[in-house]
Amino acid sequence: MIRLQNVRKVFNADKANEFVAIEGVNLSIDSHGATVLKGPSGSGKTTLLSILGCMARPTSGRIMLKEREITSLPERFLTEVRRETFGIVFQQFNLIKGITALENVMLPAYPNGEKHASLKKRAMELLDLLNLIGKAFSKVEWLSGGEAQRIAIARALINNPAIIIADEPTAHLDTRLSREFMEIMRQLKKEGKTLLIASHDPIVYDSTVIDRIVEIRDGKIVSSGDIP
């Protein structure tokens, strides 16, 4: 589904603090699987994830998404691709405070120009699915950690993406909530979504949901084997 060829990402190029965050990465992600990017802090997981998720362009190398070359797409089009293909869950939920849970879920679909009423209906269905219907009209700052996490998942699903990307999703959750998160992931995988998770939490990479672990260190892939 996604193929990276010799991808390299440099920060602060040609300056004293030049930093190569990703170097020589070749990686192929298949549909319907669950992949974990595993590695210590600072190894380049987030950087790689943002390139995979069309949030950043690599300094060099090529990216193919469903056989379409998207390497040098300008931001205007890359965003469109991202909005249609990826749903993203962040480490710190990253919900927008001051507005309701429902509005947070609807936000990613605003630029699509969907009718407000039908969008709202879809968002309510998603909230229902995640057992959050009672919280739809609460401000997000009143939600518990688990509820906020599920709102973040609902938001990632609103545009019906093929791929779910999560960056350290369990870093701010206790064990029970982390397991709950993985159960939701299992459900999504069953529905046919492709999962891409960056994490160094054993609850994530030891979970039976995961099909494949890609290990990174210092910006390079050290092993990209499938789980037996």
Binding site: E80, R82, N94, L107
Partner: peptide, 16 residues
């Protein structure tokens, strides 16, 4: 800044 960052990450474009 965080809010704009979030909007951009979840699929809003610079023009939006």
């Amino acid at each position: 800044k965080r809010e704009i960052g979030i909007l951009k990450a979840i699929g809003w474009e610079t023009s939006d």
